[in-house]
Design a protein around this nucleic acid. Structure first.
Lengths: 209, 209
DNA sequence: TCTCGTTTTAAACGGTCGTTTTAAACAATC
DNA sequence: GATTGTTTAAAACGACCGTTTAAAACGAGA
């Protein structure tokens, strides 16, 4: 088994388990068992559990932000004054395509769940890591939003977009629980696609009011 | 120190720490140290950590659901066909008043954060506990929502209300992080009240579209 | 005051955690 | 084929976890 195999298998297992259980509830022994590698491999290849957490985020956020940056540049070149719809469309398309490509197919729900953990479970080290590496792309994205609605204050823009992120992240984070509840309540199953198809107009109405 | 003191102090400390760190990241030793009680007191008074978690939820959800039930009855007696606004208003008022009363003053952000944990960190035992004890009030609330908008399918109602819950829970769960980010982005501080004042019309626009 | 049920205390239990260590297996270079 | 640096393997480390135990302290009723 080559190094790349071992590292990748650890990242794959860690990503799944973190998304499913969170950071503290996932032990290195769970990760290495699922990855079928030796326990010590995590500390050898990554250094520590914290470094592994950061590596898991880096693996999907780095290509995602690169893609988003590129797409934002394409958009800026194509249209004079990008509308809110333009900007959000770039984000949505980047999430759908960028997530599924690059490093194998990654489920959108895993992406969202990890993003949610970054907000709600992040210890200091992860927050600092994310800010240091991805704050630039984030800022650029926010700037386009502001330009699209110059009549709104930066504070209003900030909070509206984070309300929207909250609805997405929460929904996708607890999608299994919610689907169970929906099933119990309404008697009908809701596919993830159905949920997305309702979420988007919901957010559009809230953002564009 | 009387029993009530010990039990209450444990619940207070546990509530704060759970809201701050989550369940797995909070040890009984942290809780008992903060509460200034002996380590064994948790197992003596509550049985186990799981039972303590359930007790923390019960302490704020039981009076909350009682209040909500009562207020829903008042509303139903007052207006023939309650509108969405009527129903949500009952919820909002119950949260603001009911949370702050009953057992001392509890911060709204702690309430929200615990609610969020129930969705995203709930082990099986907590989910079963909440369903068993509070599902009835929840169902009744949902029924009024359906009655207010009979043209929407139960599935649409369910998902819209949970998108809204997501925006609330996520925002209040990571309110400290978000306020820091907002400060860094816009240079202005956003008080919790400011955020609420923006969140409510945001949700209204999304729900009532 | 003595008694007896309740509560608190200090210490220990077995188990799991993240991490380290030491040696073995491997792959590439000469 | 020996040597070197890299990767894997098994075992152990100390630390902390939730829980249990057994004795001490307490408090109300006889």
């Amino acid at each position: 088994m080559s190094q790349a195999d071992t590292v990748t298998r650890i990242l794959d297992s860690a990503e799944e388990l973190f998304a499913e259980k969170g950071f503290a509830e996932t032990s290195l022994r769970m990760i290495t068992t699922r990855a079928k590698v030796n326990l010590a491999a995590v500390n050898y290849h990554f250094g520590s559990k914290k470094d592994l957490i950061q590596a898991v985020f880096a693996r999907f956020l780095s290509p995602f932000c690169s893609k988003l940056d590129k797409e934002l540049t394409v958009m800026a070149a194509a249209v004079q004054e990008p509308s809110l719809h333009d900007v959000l469309d770039v984000l949505a398309r980047t999430m759908l395509t960028g997530v599924h490509s690059t490093v194998g197919t990654r489920k959108l729900s895993v992406f969202m769940r990890l993003l949610g953990l970054a907000y709600t479970q992040a210890q200091g080290h992860l927050r600092r890591f994310l800010k240091e590496h991805y704050h630039q792309t984030y800022s650029r994205f926010i700037l386009y939003l502001r330009a699209a609605h110059p009549e709104l204050s930066p504070r209003e823009i900030f909070w509206r977009i984070h309300f929207a992120i909250g609805a997405c992240v929460f929904t996708m984070s607890s999608i299994e629980v919610l689907r169970d509840m929906s099933m119990a309540d309404t008697g009908e199953d809701s596919g993830v696609e159905d949920v997305m198809n309702q979420l988007i107009p919901f957010l559009a109405a809230a953002l564009e009011r």
